[in-house]
Design a protein around this nucleic acid. Structure first.
Length: 566
RNA sequence: CGGGGCGUAGCGCAGCCCGGUAGCGCGCCUGCUUUGGGAGCAGGAUGUCGGAGGUUCAAAUCCUCUCGCCCCGACCA
């Protein structure tokens, strides 16, 4: 493809709105342009990358036995009401009415639509198992879209849904997808890790997320150093401390702690370690007010709290509610004498003796408080985030933290949707059974962004060959007849051999071409200049390493074949 | 939704505090020269100063409202 008539509007300067590498470089290289917050147009180069990723996804999905379908983006509310998600999904679900005032939404995911299809057309166990997938635009009205393609509102997703006769079959389907995903991300040239994950709004029984490891990732993952355990921090289990403190309980005392609200302030004032304090955090759930107790050096894991309480929504109680419930300003809440509020606590709280807690009175805390003796806890559970150094729940070493970009997520759904929507089939005995489902997503556009986060340098992108917009960037440095003729010949030779060549035929100076080529990041650059040509050579340069090989034009094909694996 | 910031030429920004009718760099167009890492000279085009209202003789600048965008937070008491 020639650049002179291709829309590749590269930018010389960094766009002000972009913070992270992928966003900045996608804009600068003229691959995407913003239309609204979290909504982008893909230009020719950006689209080529997406198509490459899609092709790999398609190949591996087909190889795994899944079949491609295409569902609509607009879905009628009725289907979403059947599963209850019309109310449950919240504001991320973009809703609208058609001209007849009927409710519709833009699909953020397609369990309802696919289940509706299958319940109509799959009646017999003979038709199962079945796995249908699509590659399609999704819309989620994110609270805060950011980082370009990383968290858009409109984005491209591959979503697949499997239907099996029973749990055992569903497990096989799940494993097939897990394996396909591993092949897909490997082929895309990504360093990734599959981790245990929370199922979130999709629901279901278990899931794994595929995380591309990158410091700019929005997710925190924990993994056992040298072991196999790996999980999203939302999900990662923490073990209760092995031993209960053997300290003898001391009498409860109330002490003045003027103006100390935070753990740091209180512990510094009382000269105790944060691990000797229990903080009391008040949450407003969709049902009632709940006090969550965790050790001073721990963090509440809201996902775990939500699960324990069986509620969908949970937020910190606002200061007015805290004061109403505790009788004290925010910062002095404690479990002792706290009435009409459910009190739940992290396991670690149970093993502590003689702790500091809030007194529900301004400017005072209790010291030497002991649970059971001084306050009652309704339920103990794992309610905190895992931290670096915690023991792995699998016992395979201490946990470490890392950042990741979630590019894929596989779920065992069980019968959540088939039950809600009555997706039944007849088994060999003629009995009606619920299909056991799984669902599997890949953020196609996010994969592109993740690849850049992992593969770039100060000058631009460093695309892995399988997803690069082009393999070779052909850079004739002058408009002379000899240079042009050589460029023409090499373009044809390489193209015929299956190499994808971007031919910079613009009348630009060498520096401009080099900089644009480095920015766009094709794995190889083929430089043709007057000087080299006078000596009978052209240069083939590896973008990533900067390694330059001078060779006769006739030797380029063989070298390119070797490097590109053609 | 809360906090902060920003909307001025295609892009990046200055001008705003202290009101007087808009500027710089890059890009774009023309010509000449130049031609291996973002060329030089000369000439040129481009702005409802995000929008609406208000104050004023006069508003990019002050006031009010509004829309959009970016960042942080929406998690620790």
């Amino acid at each position: 493809m020639r650049t002179s008539h291709t829309l590749i509007p590269t930018l010389r300067e960094d766009p002000g709105e972009a913070e992270i590498a992928s966003h900045r470089l996608l804009l600068r290289a003229g691959m995407i342009r913003k239309v609204a917050a979290g909504i982008y147009t893909y230009l020719p180069l950006g689209l080529r990358v997406l198509r490459k990723i899609e092709a790999i996804v398609r190949e591996e999905m087909n190889r795994s036995g899944a079949q491609e379908v295409l569902m609509p983006i607009a879905a009628p509310a009725e289907l979403w009401r059947e599963t209850g998600r019309w109310d449950f999904y919240g504001k991320e679900l973009l809703r609208f009415k058609d001209r007849h005032e009927r409710d519709f939404c833009l699909g953020p995911t397609h369990e309802e639509l696919i289940t509706d299809l299958i319940r109509r057309d799959v009646r017999s166990y003979r038709q199962l198992p079945l796995n249908c997938y699509q590659i399609q635009t999704k819309f989620r009205d994110e609270i805060r879209p950011r980082f370009g393609l990383m968290r858009g509102r409109e984005f491209i997703m591959k979503d697949a849904y499997s239907f099996d006769r029973d749990e055992a079959g569903a497990k096989i389907s799940y494993q097939k997808m897990y394996d396909a995903y591993s092949r897909i991300f490997t082929r895309c040239g990504l360093t990734f890790r599959a981790v245990e994950a929370d199922t979130g709004l999709i629901g279901g029984t278990s899931s794994h997320e595929f995380m591309v490891l990158a410091d700019t990732g929005e997710e925190t993952i924990v993994y056992a150093e040298g072991g196999t355990y790996a999980a999203n921090v939302e999900r990662a289990e923490t073990l209760p401390p092995a031993e209960t403190s053997s300290d003898a309980p001391r009498p409860l005392r109330k002490v003045p702690t003027p103006g100390t609200r935070s753990v740091e302030e209180v512990t510094a004032f009382l000269k105790v370690s944060p691990a000797q304090l229990v903080k009391t955090i008040l949450y407003q759930s969709s049902k009632d007010l709940v006090a969550v107790l965790v050790r001073g050096d721990h963090e509440v894991n809201e996902v775990k709290v939500k699960k324990l309480l069986g509620v969908a929504a949970l937020e910190l109680a606002d200061p007015a509610r805290v004061t109403a419930a505790t009788g004290a300003p925010v910062g002095f809440a404690g479990p002792i004498g706290l009435r009409q509020v459910r009190i739940i606590a992290d396991h670690a709280v149970k093993t502590l003796r003689n702790v500091v807690v809030g007194s529900n009175e301004a400017n005072a805390h209790y010291v030497d408080a002991n649970c059971d003796r001084d306050f009652a806890v309704e339920q103990f559970a794992d309610l905190r985030n895992a931290q670096a150094g915690d023991p792995s729940p699998k016992g395979d070493g201490p946990l470490r933290l890392a950042r990741g970009i979630e590019v894929g997520h596989v779920f065992m759904l069980g019968t959540k949707y088939s039950k809600a929507m009555n997706a039944m089939f007849l088994d060999p005995e003629g009995k009606e059974c619920l299909a056991v489902m799984g669902c599997y997503g890949i953020g196609v556009s996010r994969v592109a962004a993740a690849a850049i986060e992992q593969h770039h340098d100060a000058k631009g992108m460093l695309w892995p060959i399988p997803i690069a917009p082009f393999h070779v960037h052909l850079l004739p440095l002058s408009q002379s007849a000899a240079v042009s003729a050589t460029a023409q010949t090499l373009y044809e030779t390489l193209s015929q051999a299956g190499a994808e060549v971007l031919w910079d035929d613009r009348d630009e100076r060498a520096g401009v071409k080099f900089n644009d080529a480095d920015l766009i990041g094709a794995p190889y650059q083929l430089v043709i200049g007057e000087k080299g040509l006078a000596q009978g050579t052209v240069e083939l340069k590896e973008r990533k390493t900067g390694t330059v090989k001078k060779m006769a034009p006739g030797d380029v094909l063989a070298q390119a074949r070797e490097w590109l694996g053609l």
